[in-house]
Design a protein around this nucleic acid. Structure first.
Lengths: 380, 380
DNA sequence: CCATCGGATGTTTACGTAAACATAACAGCA
DNA sequence: TGCTGTTATGTTTACGTAAACATCCGATGG
């Protein structure tokens, strides 16, 4: 762990601490070591090297390298041969410096512990690759503002043209500080569409669908196992749940919360199992639903005969739960794709272009939901 | 942690308070956009700009920026003030060009669909960040050699100093082709320790522990629900399973396979449920174990009364399965950390340094395993 | 009192690429 | 034949940074 400490070379940073004498950047002592350049081994050949071997100017090599027209076929062949012989690879740092762009997108995410973030990240990486962009990952270990600020701070000097934030934006707000002016930002999971470009799943629509599904089966009302307070997604799901019940003229039970984890779903589930009038639960994500299923099972409440459970996300395992979970499918791939699309569009047009893009959910009915115990009517 | 200390060094960290305002940034309207140069809008200021404003040479700015000693306190203050005013950020492309390193690690991974890969990636990203390195993600959509080759091809011109491959190495072999000579590679999940530096979980030890656990409970033998043929991890788990049984003088049942997914575990499980003498199953990962549990449940075989099930990975949800799953805990965080450590060490020492580092597993006993139906003896 | 030293700062140069601006060779055409 | 327009290629320059080298200055000491 501590290894970092020993490497002043690392980031000369600590200097600030003190005009006092840190540093001397010491690590550098063995200066040769640093620059993997023409040290002991060989360095990657440069255009000049290729040019020399091919007997042309480096500009011609550049033209070949970038596929410009206007190079004699014969010459091109020679250059290509020389490139191959030397194992030439364009130096992306020099290229980025010259062109002023890195062809890289930074993704800031608060841990990869939730399926949604991971799926989204995956889709972002794929879409980006497809567009010729690389993705640089910026994990934020702890979602404190300090941490986020730190991530952004690092980001500032990072080689990225744009940033996608998979995180609640309120953390972002206080930390956004000094992003380089030309870097565009797109946010997932937020209601800050007025200030940023936001791409998100239709949390409200999905939640409403969950409630309607359960009410439609005859349940008198629906309990909600919500996500943590800090999460906008959780907040909106809870809000829509309440609203849908209100619209239907039902009384909303008190809100209970987990932290997205199966474990928390289990804890809350033990509690819910003792509520005699609890016949239908809408869990804010599938993992909590899993814990809930376990708790209900342990307490002898059958699903769906005694209690119906519906989740949110449709993670791959949901169909293998006991019983297979009815849930709302989120199209994370689409969310990721749209993020990349949006951020590239912003970059290219340089338009501010705020606003929120919503990706719909889809109700997937499996075996965890059914009519309430009393039968169709529920008893209202 | 230490991060806080380090930030201010490079830059006037807290700068922005005032300059803040995420601001539209859009000012760039004119097509100057691309070059983000000093066109209509503002560009990120360069050292020269800062130098001019502070009335010093750009070299002095460089010294301040990198925290060199030997800068008069007064001068330093002026430079920092100028940096702050202009919102100066070092240009990482220029820096990389000059220094010959990017401070970035590339991670090639075949999809993020398995928990293990994701957890490892996360740990890598965290460790790398801690060392002042960024992580660039290279997803390989389909694990064909063409795809892998493509990823590596992109990688060749990518701005990375080293590469970590989370993937079976046999795909790598045919594709590794032309990695830039100075780029170091570390591989996860492989037996190619003779050719690469490999970090991996103790697949064999874990599998052996699983078998011993079940035999110790009195089962006559242990079935194995293996992973896909292409995977080295699956291969080694299966191999160790067979070996452990052999050592104990037991007959190994035929090997059945899934593809890591819960769904496949379910399919195979339906089949296993019909085997009358199947009282204990070692699933090669937790997800398949989940599907297996469902299949057994549906077929009326109780776990652990009729059949014991043990998994591998200890994913977060395993403790919430029905019943909570006995499994082998993999320390992915440690794997990731070691990967980063190894790759950085290789980079710095420029030593080939092959060999395999093994991270031990830990048996986590929960409720899915117990004595066989007949009682302790099993009936041998 | 001058030679020397070392701290503080400035100047030159190179990193590898690619845009912008030359130049050269040659074909077409009046 | 001489002018013009292409096509193929070379030369110059700049991107932002930082190492290497150069300079300046006050202080120290013989």
């Amino acid at each position: 762990m501590d290894t970092s400490g020993r490497t002043p070379a690392n980031v000369p940073g600590p200097a600030a601490e003190a005009a006092a004498g840190p540093v001397d950047v010491g690590g550098n002592g063995p200066k040769a070591a640093r620059g993997r350049i023409r040290g002991g081994g060989r360095a990657s050949a440069s255009m000049a090297d290729v040019a020399r071997l091919a007997g042309v100017s480096s500009q011609t090599v550049s033209r070949v390298s970038n596929g410009y027209a206007g190079v004699n076929e014969e010459t091109r062949r020679q250059v290509l041969a020389a490139m191959k012989e030397l194992g030439y690879r364009p130096n992306s740092a020099a290229r980025a410096l010259k062109r002023g762009e890195f062809r890289t997108i930074g993704v800031i995410t608060f841990s990869l512990s939730t399926t949604g973030n991971v799926r989204t990240l995956e889709a972002i990486a794929n879409s980006a690759a497809h567009e010729g962009y690389a993705v640089t990952l910026l994990p934020v270990a702890v979602p404190t503002q300090d941490e986020v600020r730190g991530a952004f701070s690092r980001l500032e000097e990072l080689a990225v043209d744009a940033v996608i934030v998979i995180m609640e934006v309120h953390l972002l707000d206080a930390a956004t500080v000094t992003l380089p002016p030309h870097v565009q930002v797109v946010v997932v999971d937020s209601d800050a569409g007025d200030r940023y470009t936001v791409v998100d799943t239709d949390q409200a629509g999905g939640s409403r669908a969950a409630v309607h599904h359960l009410l439609g089966l005859g349940h008198r009302t629906v309990w909600h196992l919500g996500g943590p307070e800090g999460s906008f997604a959780a907040q909106r799901r809870a809000h829509a749940w309440r609203a849908a019940l209100a619209e239907a003229g039902r009384l909303a039970p008190r809100l209970v919360r987990g932290d997205w984890s199966a474990e928390s779903g289990y804890r809350v589930g033990l509690e819910l199992a003792t509520e005699p009038d609890c016949t239908a639960v809408f869990a804010a994500n599938d993992q909590m639903a899993l814990g809930l299923l376990r708790a209900l099972h342990e307490r002898g409440r059958r699903v769906p005969e005694d209690v119906s459970v519906i989740g949110f996300d449709d993670i791959a395992e949901a169909s293998s739960f006991l019983p297979p979970l009815t849930t709302l499918h989120q199209d994370f791939a689409e969310v990721g794709r749209l993020c990349v699309e949006a951020v590239l569009r912003k970059m290219r047009q340089d338009g501010p272009e705020r606003g929120t893009t919503i990706v719909p959910t889809r109700l997937v009915v499996r075996a965890s939901t059914g009519p309430p115990p009393g039968g169709g009517g529920g008893g209202s």
